[in-house]
């Protein structure tokens, strides 16, 4: 049966190859480091493009005017004028409507699932609610525009076909799973012993929830609200489709309004060529959007880290 090769020989032969491999291996950390740097480059790319083009924009438009003027006519041939205020009010009002839906329903869902529901109900319901979070936002946009708005108009005749109310409600529905699931996590991390302590004093489940569980989980719950708001501010397609493109400075949610995100969509998909003031303005708006959401996410991260240390 052929000649036998000893294990020692095999190892010796391999050793030669191994030396080459060892040399090659020294490069691996550098390759991996380069790959890991892509995420930092992404951030650098985002911040620098936004900063640079925003800077170009503010060479042509006064920064004070941008934040105080209420007249937004970026594409006007005659007399273009730029103001972030109508977009800000649009964004804030629609997010407000969304949170008026998402916070009460999300929080009470979390309370029901974590404090009242049996284990089997919880296991069945939780994944279904999370399906809501997995549906693409464009589908919600379609739902708001072709289904929710027509229904709302039956009750509110003054409602325009594009308005702030309908996308706000639908966006709220989209955010329910986020609020519910993060709040539930926070409430679940409250030790069972604390609930038992309160129940043993004759408290009802509601009293345990309101006076023990929620106070103990409050930072996690607030973090879920803040992340929800941040999601609402950054959401694009629902508002692009269902709230229209009116840039009037108004607080009437039955009217069409434009959010910061929808403005970016309008300008990029329109024919404002690179180099025009309208083109630069979208970076200024995007910069404001980026800063708002970043601050909120960092705030949410900060408070939820704090509660994790509590027990």
């Amino acid at each position: 049966m052929g000649k036998t090769v000893s294990v020692k020989d095999l190892i010796r032969n391999k050793d030669k190859k191994n030396k080459l491999m060892l040399k090659a291996e020294r490069t691996i950390p550098f390759i991996l480091f380069a790959l890991a740097s892509i995420s930092i480059l992404t951030t650098v790319g985002i911040v620098s493009t936004l900063l640079y083009e925003t800077f170009l924009f503010f060479r042509e438009v006064s920064i004070i005017e941008f934040f105080t003027n209420t007249n937004m006519k970026p594409l006007s041939r005659v007399e273009p004028s730029f103001s972030i205020l109508p977009l800000l009010t649009g964004t804030i009002l629609i997010s407000l409507v969304a949170m008026l839906v998402a916070i009460p329903i999300g929080l009470t869902t979390a309370i029901y699932l974590s404090e009242y529901a049996s284990e089997s109900v919880r296991k069945a319901v939780k994944p279904i609610i999370e399906v809501l979070a997995g549906i693409p936002t464009i589908v919600y946009g379609f739902f708001a525009f072709t289904f929710v708005t027509p229904i709302l108009r039956e009750f509110i005749p003054a409602l325009q076909s594009t308005n702030a109310l309908s996308p706000g409600i639908v966006m709220g529905i989209m955010i329910i799973p986020l609020v519910a699931s993060l709040s539930e996590d926070a409430m679940n991390s409250v030790p069972k012993a604390m609930r038992e302590g309160a129940l043993a004093l004759g408290a009802t489940k509601l009293e345990v929830t309101l006076r023990v569980v929620i106070p103990a989980a409050i930072s996690g719950i607030i973090a879920s609200f803040v992340l929800g708001i941040s999601r609402a501010i950054g959401e694009t397609m629902i508002v692009t489709i269902a709230s229209g493109s009116s840039k009037n400075f108004t607080f009437d949610i039955t009217q069409s309004m434009q959010t910061m995100t929808a403005y970016i969509v309008e300008v990029t998909s329109g024919d404002a060529g690179a180099g025009t003031t309208a083109y630069y303005s979208l970076y200024a708006v995007a910069f404001a959007l980026f800063i708002f959401t970043l601050l909120m996410n960092m705030f949410a991260g900060h408070i939820s880290r704090k509660y994790r240390e509590a027990y």
């Binding site: 941040s230 950054g234 959401e235 970016i264 969509v265 980026f290 959401t293 996410n297």
Partner: peptide, 8 residues
């Protein structure tokens, strides 16, 4: 980065 709006 995970929290930056997709439009950005």
């Amino acid at each position: 980065l995970a929290g930056v709006p997709s439009i950005v």
